[in-house]
Design a protein around this nucleic acid. Structure first.
Lengths: 141, 141
DNA sequence: TGACAAATGCAACTAAGTTGCGTTAGTATA
DNA sequence: TATACTAACGCAACTTAGTTGCATTTGTCA
């Protein structure tokens, strides 16, 4: 996980300004244990007393993805979620309460198969999305 | 892949009426080599001279999913896609032209790890979503 | 301190999906 | 073949996620 100082260093290097919105945005992302949607981000910022327009949030996300700081995650619903770029990992999503948990799995056989596809099919796999759905301990009666 | 006769039998058993829209809907789904979005379905029906409201399509999808005939697929964008329930498989999605291809992969190690999570973590995995993104042979210059 | 451009806010928009309700039309039965 | 029941449908109005253009604000550096 990139720590916040590291991120601010990247921003400085790119001559990006340190606005208070941006500061709060970085802090919020680094503190969140789960991926956040734009509406999540807006409401968290609001509770911190920072009123931002959704356009700003969408544009900030765009910039951070371009810099490789943020990653987009699909969790099965209509929204996009975002988390700081980090060690490649996946998620457990509870179908009942929507809680999201990180999970590390051994992808070696998956990667082997991807390489096989790259060789044999004429399709070059660049990334994959792998998410697990089920019931968390609270919802699993 | 369930063939159309099989589907019609299910519909009859459930006392669901065979409207011309429904007939076209089943045909279209069974003929499509790739998952379809609601807008895909609407425009294909239109080219066949069948004018349907999007509400009808959404409700038809809902019924078919409840019957286990249809499955929902997320392909990374904001839309949901649908395909006939069939052998469990995954997709190759071209990031350039958005073409979708089916892919069969060996999931045995994945399933083993899921069972391990079910045992060790208090999280019961019920399903997963695994999609591959990259460049198809036409777009891979 | 002033100037420049990055960053922001606002309004208006599109696209995906949902809901309620009145109307249409398959289908079983007589 | 006519009738009645209700599944299926269409329409309008709505919500939510995300986008675009443009005028205004505000960090930052000289």
């Amino acid at each position: 996980m990139k720590d916040t100082e590291n991120i601010f260093a990247i921003l400085r290097a790119k001559k990006m300004r340190l606005t208070k919105t941006r500061f709060a945005f970085v802090t919020l992302l680094s503190e969140s244990p789960t991926p956040l949607s734009v509406s999540d981000i807006l409401s968290i910022l609001q509770t911190k007393g920072i009123v931002v327009d959704k356009t700003t949030v969408y544009r900030e996300i765009e910039r951070f993805i371009a810099l490789g700081i943020l990653e987009e995650v699909s969790l099965g619903d209509r929204k996009k979620y975002y988390e700081l770029a980090s060690e490649h990992h996946h998620h457990l999503i509870c179908l009942e309460c929507n809680r999201v948990e990180d999970i590390d799995i051994d992808e070696s056989t998956l990667v082997q198969q991807e390489m096989k596809v790259n060789r044999e099919k004429k399709f070059q796999i660049l990334k994959h999305s792998l998410e697990f759905f089920g019931l968390c301990n609270k919802c699993c009666v």
